[in-house]
Amino acid sequence: MSSDDVRERAARPEDLGRFILERLNAGDVEGLVALYEPDAILALPNGQVATGSEEIRQAYAHIVADRPTFAPGQQQPTLQNGDLALTSARLVDGGATVEVARRQADGTWLWVIDQPSLLG
């Protein structure tokens, strides 16, 4: 059994926000990558975009390298239309996150677009 098999999967789009915080604080790079579709995009603080699992993996490896602590934001109501959902959170620093999740064939949810530092 791989470590992906034992990680909890998002039954609702809102679960992704909780999982990302848990996995960031644990330094769990593979667990972070597992929250995204294979061809997802992740906006980076420097204005660049990480596209696909390998670039997202590299970005998170860099982000958690010094083991920073991430504080929870205030989850905002999810907007859902069929198999797509818009999730967001207000951050402690006044910024916000905005993400688009898609329901997978097994009923779980993964992010396809992640903008973690809007207005931050």
Rank of each mutant, 00 (worst) to 15 (best):
S2D: 10
S3D: 06
D4N: 10
V6C: 04
E8W: 04
E8S: 11
R9W: 00
A10V: 10
A10Y: 03
A10H: 03
A11R: 15
R12F: 04
P13D: 06
P13Y: 08
E14Q: 15
E14Y: 02
E14H: 07
D15F: 14
L16G: 01
F19V: 08
I20C: 13
G27N: 01
G27H: 00
V29C: 10
E30Q: 09
E30W: 01
E30M: 04
V33C: 13
A34R: 04
L35M: 08
L35N: 02
E37P: 01
D39W: 00
A40Y: 03
I41P: 03
I41A: 07
I41N: 04
I41Y: 04
L42W: 05
L44M: 15
L44Q: 14
P45A: 08
P45N: 07
N46C: 05
N46M: 05
G47P: 14
G47S: 06
Q48L: 13
Q48G: 14
V49F: 13
A50N: 09
E54C: 02
E54N: 13
E55T: 03
R57T: 03
R57L: 02
Q58M: 08
A59S: 13
A59T: 03
A59P: 04
Y60R: 03
A61E: 03
A61W: 00
H62M: 10
H62S: 11
I63L: 15
I63F: 01
V64C: 10
V64Y: 02
A65D: 02
A65V: 08
R67Q: 09
P68F: 08
T69P: 06
T69K: 14
F70S: 07
F70P: 12
P72W: 02
G73W: 01
G73Q: 08
G73F: 05
Q75S: 09
Q76W: 02
P77E: 11
T78G: 08
L79P: 01
L79S: 08
Q80I: 12
Q80F: 09
G82N: 05
G82Q: 06
L84Y: 11
L84E: 00
L84Q: 06
A85L: 15
T87S: 03
S88T: 14
S88E: 03
S88W: 07
A89P: 01
R90W: 00
R90G: 00
L91N: 11
L91H: 09
L91F: 07
G94P: 11
G95S: 12
A96F: 10
A96V: 12
T97Y: 05
T97E: 08
V98R: 15
R102W: 05
R102N: 00
R102T: 00
R103T: 01
R103Y: 02
R103F: 05
R103G: 00
Q104H: 10
G107Q: 08
T108C: 12
T108D: 01
W109T: 02
V112Y: 06
I113K: 06
D114A: 10
Q115M: 14
Q115H: 11
P116N: 11
P116T: 10
P116Y: 01
L119T: 04
G120Y: 04
G120F: 07
